[in-house]
Amino acid sequence: MRKWLIPVIVIVAIAAIIGFWAVGIKNGAVAKNQNVSKTWGDVQTAYQRRNDLIGNLVNTVKGAADFEKSTLTAVVEARAKATSVNVNADNLTPEKLEEFNKAQSGVSSSLSRLLVSVEAYPQLKANENFLKLQDELASTENMIQTSRVRYNESVVDYNSYILTFPNSMFLGKYKEKAYFNAVEGAEKPVEVKF
């Protein structure tokens, strides 16, 4: 064997090992990015379920009570605003996520006012359809919370992967994803008035 061939083989072997290692890092980033996209889709699905239920709830309330129109209008308008804000999983910037979060908190707020004001209508509280919808909404809010937590967990995993050294050397085009944060004022207790 020729002496010059040994260093060439060693260099080629080292280059191949580094190449496979870099490919492994990129493939890992792709998998983690796909997981973030999937969990973001779960968040959107949970919010869509709530939006679908709100339409049924509003119609049930309209049909069962001579209800305050301003409260119903606020719920419908908040729902329309929330469905108009679209955030793509590839563009999960803090600003976009905050805009989405604010729109969804408007729905939560107006929905809470609706459910509190229902207390003045005993025939509505006894309505079986309304009770089922109220239970579904409570279940959906829990699903939304769970989806948001899972989304944040996937973002931690993704961000940690792309930002740690040496992965960050190979993953320059991968950008950090934003987390779901509580909406402004969420730390204050909800005041219920009858």
Rank of each mutant, 00 (worst) to 15 (best):
M1I: 08
R2M: 12
K3S: 14
K3E: 09
W4P: 00
L5W: 09
L5H: 05
L5Y: 08
I6M: 12
I9W: 12
V10C: 13
I17H: 00
W21Q: 11
G28S: 09
V30Q: 04
A31D: 03
K32P: 01
N33K: 13
V36Q: 01
S37K: 13
T45F: 03
A46H: 04
A46Q: 04
A46W: 05
Q48S: 11
Q48A: 14
L53C: 08
I54Y: 06
I54K: 05
N56W: 08
N59F: 05
N59A: 11
N59V: 00
N59I: 00
T60A: 14
V61P: 01
E77A: 14
K81P: 00
K81C: 04
T83W: 06
S84K: 12
S84L: 08
V85Y: 03
N86G: 04
N88K: 13
A89L: 03
N91D: 13
N91T: 11
L92K: 03
T93Q: 03
E95W: 02
L97G: 02
E99Y: 00
E99G: 06
E99D: 11
F100G: 02
F100R: 10
Q104G: 08
S105N: 15
S105G: 10
S112P: 06
R113Y: 11
R113S: 15
L114R: 08
L115G: 06
L115Q: 10
S117L: 13
S117C: 05
L124V: 12
L124F: 03
N127H: 06
E128G: 04
N129I: 04
F130R: 03
L131W: 00
Q134M: 10
D135W: 06
L137P: 09
T140Y: 08
M143G: 07
Q145K: 13
Q145I: 05
T146C: 02
R148C: 03
R148Q: 07
V149S: 13
E153W: 09
V156N: 08
Y158N: 05
N159T: 09
N159D: 11
I162V: 11
I162G: 01
S168F: 02
M169F: 15
F170V: 12
L171E: 08
G172N: 09
G172I: 02
E176M: 13
K177F: 04
Y179S: 09
F180C: 05
N181R: 10
E184T: 06
E187I: 10
E187H: 13
K188Q: 14
K188A: 15
P189T: 13
E191L: 15
E191S: 14
